[in-house]
Amino acid sequence: GKMTGIVKWFNADKGFAFITPDDGSKDVFVHFSAIQNDGYKSLDEGQKVSFTIESGAKGPAAGNVTSL
């Protein structure tokens, strides 16, 4: 299901971020390909987002990341 959280930090050079979920679970890795914005895919620290949890090769990662 959809979860919500806050972007903890975003590394534009490497194209990934971490989200701190609102439910208090541990921070979730985000690859820029999961960001659903049109055009430039970036996130801002402190931004509120919704996302799903996908199981990636290196463990859980956020999918369908959308700005709220």
Rank of each mutant, 00 (worst) to 15 (best):
Y40F: 12
F16G: 04
A61G: 12
F51S: 00
K48M: 08
Q36K: 06
G46H: 03
V49G: 00
G63E: 11
N11H: 06
N37R: 06
Y40V: 09
Q47A: 09
N37C: 15
S55I: 13
Y40T: 08
M3T: 05
S67F: 04
I6F: 07
Q36W: 10
Q36T: 09
N37M: 14
G63C: 15
I19F: 01
K8Y: 03
K8H: 06
G24Y: 02
G24W: 03
S50K: 06
K48W: 14
G24Q: 03
A62Y: 07
S42C: 15
S33L: 05
S25V: 02
N64W: 06
I6L: 04
A61D: 14
S50I: 13
K58T: 14
F29I: 13
S55W: 12
A17G: 15
G24C: 06
N37L: 12
I35K: 02
K2S: 10
A17N: 00
T20P: 00
D23I: 02
K58L: 14
K2C: 14
K8D: 00
V30F: 14
A17I: 06
F16P: 00
F29V: 12
G63L: 07
N11M: 06
G56I: 12
D38C: 15
H31R: 13
A57I: 13
G24K: 03
T4S: 06
S25Y: 03
D22G: 03
K26A: 12
A17L: 08
S50T: 13
N64T: 09
A34Y: 13
G1K: 12
V7Q: 00
I6V: 13
N37D: 11
K8N: 05
S50R: 07
I19K: 00
L68S: 15
K2A: 10
A12W: 09
A61W: 08
D38W: 13
S33A: 09
I53D: 03
G5I: 02
L43F: 11
A12K: 13
I19M: 01
F10Q: 02
V30I: 10
K26Q: 11
S55Q: 12
V28P: 00
G63N: 10
I35E: 03
A62P: 11
G24M: 03
K58W: 13
I19G: 00
G56K: 06
E45C: 15
D22T: 06
G15H: 07
E54M: 06
E54C: 15
E45A: 13
D13V: 12
A57T: 13
G56Q: 10
V28K: 04
A34E: 08
S67L: 05
K41S: 11
V28E: 01
T66V: 14
D22Y: 03
G5D: 00
K41V: 11
E54G: 07
I53R: 07
E45K: 12
G56H: 12
D44V: 13
D23Q: 03
K8M: 06
D23A: 02
A12L: 12
G46A: 02
L68G: 15
S33V: 05
T66A: 06
G24N: 04
K8C: 08
S33T: 08
I6M: 05
A57D: 14
F29P: 02
V49E: 00
D23C: 05
A61Q: 15
I19N: 00
D38P: 11
D13Q: 12
F29H: 05
L43A: 02
P60N: 07
S33K: 07
K14T: 06
N64A: 08
K2T: 13
L68Q: 15
K58I: 14
E54P: 05
F10R: 06
V28T: 04
K48Y: 10
V28D: 00
S67D: 15
A34C: 15
K26S: 10
W9V: 03
V30Y: 05
L43W: 10
S55K: 10
W9I: 04
L43S: 01
D44G: 13
V65D: 15
V65F: 02
A12I: 13
S42Q: 10
D13A: 13
S25H: 04
G1V: 12
T4M: 06
D27F: 03
F10L: 12
T52V: 10
T66Y: 01
G59E: 14
G39L: 11
G46Q: 02
L68Y: 01
K26T: 08
W9N: 03
P60M: 05
A12Y: 08
V49F: 02
V65M: 06
G59M: 07
I19H: 00
V65A: 05
T52L: 11
P60F: 03
V28C: 11
N64G: 07
G39D: 09
T66N: 15
T20W: 03
D13L: 13
G39Y: 07
S42M: 11
G56F: 10
K8A: 04
K14V: 05
K8I: 09
G56Y: 11
S55C: 15
G46I: 02
V65L: 11
L43M: 07
K2R: 13
G1R: 14
F16M: 13
D22E: 06
W9E: 03
V7I: 14
K58A: 15
G15Q: 12
Y40P: 07
F51T: 00
I53G: 03
N11L: 07
P21Y: 04
S67T: 03
G56M: 08
F16E: 04
H31K: 12
A61K: 06
A34Q: 12
K26G: 11
T20S: 12
P21L: 06
T4L: 06
T66L: 03
F51E: 00
K14S: 08
M3I: 07
Q36G: 07
D44S: 13
V28I: 13
F29C: 15
Y40C: 15
I53S: 05
Q47Y: 05
V65I: 11
K58H: 15
P60S: 06
T20Q: 10
G63T: 13
A34R: 10
M3L: 08
V30L: 06
K58M: 14
G46M: 03
K2V: 12
A61V: 14
